[in-house]
């Protein structure tokens, strides 16, 4: 691959970024669809567990770190360790989510589906909804983690420079998007 930065490359990069952006718009519409349910039906979504507060702080912090990655690469400073750190923060976020889900189930009796063992009642849809929207976010996060890992791997192999860092831009944009999406969901389930 040539290192010269031709017009054709700039165009291709712009197009690739746009593919991602429009994809993210699509994902927003998916979550907007889920969100609209709550307003059509005046649901109150449970959000008892504190673990979700921790995960929110972690994911915000990971995005901050990624901002440094973007700054560094433009100045040809090292990035691989920082990307790795974001990846690890992503894993910690995942850990918090799983803890949160089991907390909700074990300590608050909020389950996805089935009968409540004590009352024998079927699961109200608010409870199912809580799992549906948080797990849907997680499903998208998996792709973010994969993207971070690939970016980290490429950074290790010195694939990026201040002249050529599309991969870092793509992974970062998507990761920030996941952060914002999570903060939105967190606020949403807490204030409805």
């Amino acid at each position: 691959m040539s290192t010269s930065y031709t017009l054709e490359n700039i165009r291709k990069e712009k197009a690739t970024m746009q593919l991602l952006w429009i994809g993210m718009v699509s994902i927003c519409m998916f979550f907007a669809g889920l969100t609209s349910l709550v307003f059509v039906d005046n649901m109150e979504i449970p959000s008892e567990s504190d673990w979700f507060l921790y995960s929110t702080v972690i994911v915000l912090f990971s995005s901050l770190v990624y901002l440094i990655v973007s700054r560094n690469i433009k100045r040809d400073k090292p990035v691989s360790f920082l990307i790795f750190m974001v990846f690890i923060l992503g894993l910690i976020f995942t850990y918090c989510q799983f803890q949160g889900w089991s907390d909700m189930r074990n300590n608050y009796g909020i389950i996805f589906t089935g009968e409540n063992p004590e009352t024998g009642q079927a699961t109200p849809k608010e409870h199912s909804y809580f799992y549906a929207i948080t797990v849907a976010h997680f499903a998208h996060l998996i792709f973010g983690l994969i993207a971070l890992f690939i970016t980290f791997f490429n950074a290790l192999r010195n694939k990026y420079s201040s002249k050529k860092f599309l991969g870092i831009k793509l992974a970062g944009t998507y990761w920030h998007f996941l952060t914002i999406l999570w903060v939105y969901i967190y606020l949403f389930i807490n204030y409805t």
Partner: peptide, 25 residues
């Protein structure tokens, strides 16, 4: 298409939950 098909996806997903996992959306 990119604005409306994802909404059908969310619609279908909840139907899958109702059908296969016993939720009540």
């Amino acid at each position: 298409g990119v604005l409306s098909f994802p909404v059908l996806l969310s619609c279908g997903l909840l139907l899958v939950f109702d059908r296969s996992f016993g939720t009540s959306f």
